[in-house]
């Protein structure tokens, strides 16, 4: 029961970063391997403002989200769009964007190490809270509620609004979207920027209960990618379920066997997905 509860709470926050990556890869077609660093950057901002000015990490998000949005928009517009234009095929774009975002992730790690080389340790809402007769840390619950709120807003935006529909259209086919008068470049930049902002907010929420450090980003990138593939690219609902599964399995392995094996557990899930459902949990088989 304890495992179930904390696993679900952890999965909620994983869902947030996977949604961010989903927008970036599913719509903007950039396999963003600097996604984990964006998350850590959000965590660093939360840590920094909390220790320097005692600003609540929840309030920090009001600053983090717009900053991450603008930052990611600029990155897409000036660094990634040239690659999209240069690429002759989707495969070429994949190779180029993987290498470029690797570069960015290392640069970000380098910059963050020079800002703060140690662990981002701080204590925020680390009080016990009773839920369904079990005790959980309040910060985990708050992060989960925050993740649900953002996930819900994102789901509503994508499925019920005009601009969200345009984003989904681009994710289905860039060519067809262009033909019906959607500005593909602008929508892609928007999706990339929102994806980055969602990830950064996820990072500041996660940093309240997981101690991050400057170089841990790649682990989160890995997890987000596994969730993305398990849930199916471009499928928000699949990503949420996949994130909950990953959260549950990781928590179970960490409590029952060894905390050092969470990545191994993630890989085991990844392997099962690749062998049995490479099209994602809800994906249909492609011919």
């Amino acid at each position: 029961m304890d495992i179930l509860l904390s696993g679900l709470l952890l999965g909620g926050t994983y869902a947030l970063m996977a949604m961010g990556l989903n927008l970036q890869y599913g719509v903007a077609r950039i396999m963003n391997l600097a996604n984990g660093e964006m998350l850590v950057l959000g965590g660093l901002a939360a840590f920094w403002l909390f220790s320097a000015a005692a600003i609540s990490p929840l309030l920090t998000n009001v600053i983090v989200a717009p900053l991450a949005f603008v930052g990611n928009w600029l990155v897409y517009r000036f660094l990634l769009l040239p690659l999209v234009r240069r690429a002759k095929t989707q495969g070429q774009l994949e190779v180029d964007s993987i290498l470029a975002t690797f570069g960015m992730s290392f640069v970000l790690v380098g910059v963050m190490v020079s800002i703060h080389g140690e662990y981002f340790t701080y204590s925020f809402l680390a009080d016990p809270f009773t839920l369904l007769g079990k005790t959980v840390a309040l910060n985990r619950l708050v992060a989960f509620v925050g993740a649900c709120a953002i996930g819900g807003a994102l789901y509503y935006w994508l499925n019920r609004t005009y601009s969200g529909t345009a984003v989904r259209a681009v994710s289905v086919s860039t060519e067809a979207a262009g033909l019906v008068g959607i500005n593909v470049d602008r929508v892609s930049a928007l999706a990339f920027a929102i994806g980055g902002a969602v990830t950064a907010v996820g990072g500041s929420l996660i940093s309240t209960f997981i101690t991050l450090d400057a170089s841990i980003g790649v682990i989160f990138t890995m997890k987000a990618l596994i969730i993305l593939i398990m849930g199916g690219v471009g499928d928000i609902r699949g990503a949420i379920i996949a994130a909950l599964i990953l959260g549950l399995v990781e928590t179970a392995v960490a409590t029952v066997i060894d905390p050092g094996l969470t990545l191994v557990a993630a890989y085991a899930i990844f392997l099962c997905v690749l062998l049995f459902r490479p099209q994602g949990l809800f994906g249909r088989k492609t011919t």
């Binding site: 994949e94 990138t221 596994i226 593939i229 094996l261 191994v264 890989y267 990844f270 062998l275």
Partner: peptide
């Protein structure tokens, strides 16, 4: 066998964390 039958991205992602995963397993 697990990844190369599928699209190339899966392969890249799988290899990305492979060293870290094997290291965790070996340490354990």
């Amino acid at each position: 066998l697990a990844t190369l039958r599928l699209s190339g991205v899966y392969f890249v992602i799988f290899t990305l964390g492979l060293a870290e995963m094997v290291r965790n397993l070996v340490s354990w």
